[in-house]
Design a binder for these strands. Structure first.
Lengths: 208, 208
DNA sequence: AGACTGAATGATCTGTTGATTATTCAGGAT
DNA sequence: ATCCTGAATAATCAACAGATCATTCAGTCT
C-alpha cells in the first residue's frame, strides 16, 4: 500500500528525467519502465497512458507555481494594482522563459494543451480563483469595484490571453511583451473614460 | 498599357474562382494560366509567385472590409462607446463567419499569415488607424481620455487579440465570444477602478 | 488472489520513391 | 524591343513499405 505511491513516484521521476532530456516523443514507455525495473505493461497499473504521466509531471510543477502566484496576489503592503501587476507579470515571465530556453518544455506544453484541452482550462480556473480573491479584497478596500467578480476575472483573463502563451501568438521579445502588458493592465484598471486623473498619473509613475 | 491591368485582373479572377472552389493548395499555376489562355511562365510577369496572387485577392477583399469598418467607426449619432462596440463586434463576426463556414477561406488565411506575417501586421496597422481616429474624436467630445492615442490603440488591439482569430485560440461559440468581447470592452472603457457609476450602469444597460 | 510479465496488436512514425508542381529561363513570335 | 512560350529544374507532395512504439491481455509467479 505504501509501496504504491513510491512506485508511482519512481515512474514520474524516471519520465521527468527522460522527457526533459530527450523529449516527450523520443521517450518510450519501455524505457521508463526499464528505469523503474519493471515491464512496460506494468506502467498501466499506475497510469492510464503516456500522456497521463506527462500530465502528472505538469500538475506537480504547476502546483508549485500556483502557490507562488497566490503569495504574489496576497502580498501585504502592496495595493491591488501592484499585486495584479506582479501576478500578471509573473505569469508572462514564467511561461516566456520556460518555453523560450527549453524546447522540451515547449513540446510538452504543446502536446498537453493539444491532447488535453481540459488541462489548460483547469489552469485558467485556478488562476481565476486567485484573481477573484484579489478582486474581492480590492473591493473591500475600495480599490477596485466590480459587480460580478467571477465574470470580471474571466474578462481579465480574456484580455491578457496574448500574454499567457506568448510564443504561440506572436514573436515579440519579452521587453515588448512587458510593455504591452503594462499598457493593457493600465487600460483594464483605469479604462478609457476620463476619471481620477490624479490617481492615475501618480500610480503609473510609481510603477516605473 | 491599359491591357496590363486587365490581364492582371483576369489572373486574379481566375485564381479567385479556383482558390475558393478547389482550395489554394489544389490549384496549380498551370490551371490559372490556362484559364487566362496563357502559359504558366507568363504569370510571373504579373506576380512574383503564387502566394502573391493569394495576397492580391486577400488585399482586395480586405480593403472593402476596411471601408466598412471606417464607416462604423464614424457613424454620426452614436457615441464613442457604441462605435467602438460596433467596430470590435464587426471584426469578430466577420472573421468568425468567414472561417467558420468556408474551409477554403480558412486555408488561405492560414497560408498567408504563416508565409507572410507582414500581411497580418499590415491589417492590424490599418485597423489601428481607424481606432486612433475614433479615440481622437472621442477625446474631442470628452468621451474618452488617453495620453497617447497610438499606444492606446495598440493596447486595445492587444486586449482583443483573442477575438481577432477566434478559431485559432479557442473553440468557443460565437455567442460566448460575443459575451466575452462585451465584457472585455466594458472593462477597457470603464476599468476596474470605481468611478462614474451612474454613467456606467446606464451605458451597459443601453447596450443590451 | 494480486502483482507482474512480455508477446501480440494495431496505431503511428520514418524513410524512400515517383509523381506533381512552382519557378526559371533560353529562345520564339510579333 | 517587347511579350510570351514551354521545356528544364528543383522543391514539395503522396503513397507506400517497414519499423517503432503505446497499449492490451493471456498467462506466470508469489
Amino acid at each position: 500500500m505504501a509501496e504504491k505511491s513510491s512506485i508511482r513516484d519512481c515512474i514520474v521521476d524516471a519520465a521527468k528525467k527522460r522527457f526533459s532530456h530527450f523529449g516527450y516523443a523520443k521517450t518510450t514507455m519501455a524505457e521508463v519502465a526499464g528505469d523503474c525495473e519493471m515491464s512496460p505493461g506494468n506502467l498501466y497499473r499506475f497510469f492510464p497512458g503516456k500522456l497521463d504521466i506527462a500530465e502528472a509531471i505538469a500538475t506537480e510543477d504547476y502546483s508549485k507555481h500556483l502557490e507562488h502566484l497566490r503569495k504574489l496576489a496576497m502580498q501585504p503592503g502592496k495595493d491591488a494594482r501592484e499585486r495584479l501587476h506582479d501576478l500578471l507579470f509573473e505569469e508572462l515571465r514564467r511561461t516566456y522563459h520556460k518555453l523560450e530556453k527549453d524546447p522540451r518544455a515547449f513540446e510538452m506544453a504543446r502536446v498537453i494543451s493539444q491532447e488535453r484541452p481540459s488541462f489548460a482550462n483547469w489552469m485558467l480556473e485556478n488562476e481565476r480563483k486567485i484573481l477573484i480573491e484579489l478582486l474581492d479584497e480590492a473591493e473591500r478596500r475600495g480599490e477596485f469595484k466590480t459587480d460580478d467578480k467571477e465574470f470580471a476575472a474571466e474578462m481579465v483573463q480574456a484580455a491578457t490571453m496574448k500574454f499567457r502563451y506568448p510564443q504561440l501568438w506572436s514573436k515579440l521579445t519579452l521587453p515588448k511583451l512587458e510593455r504591452e502588458l503594462e499598457g493593457v493592465m493600465n487600460l483594464l484598471i483605469f479604462g478609457l473614460c476620463p476619471h481620477l486623473q490624479e490617481y492615475r498619473r501618480s500610480a503609473t509613475q510609481a510603477a516605473e
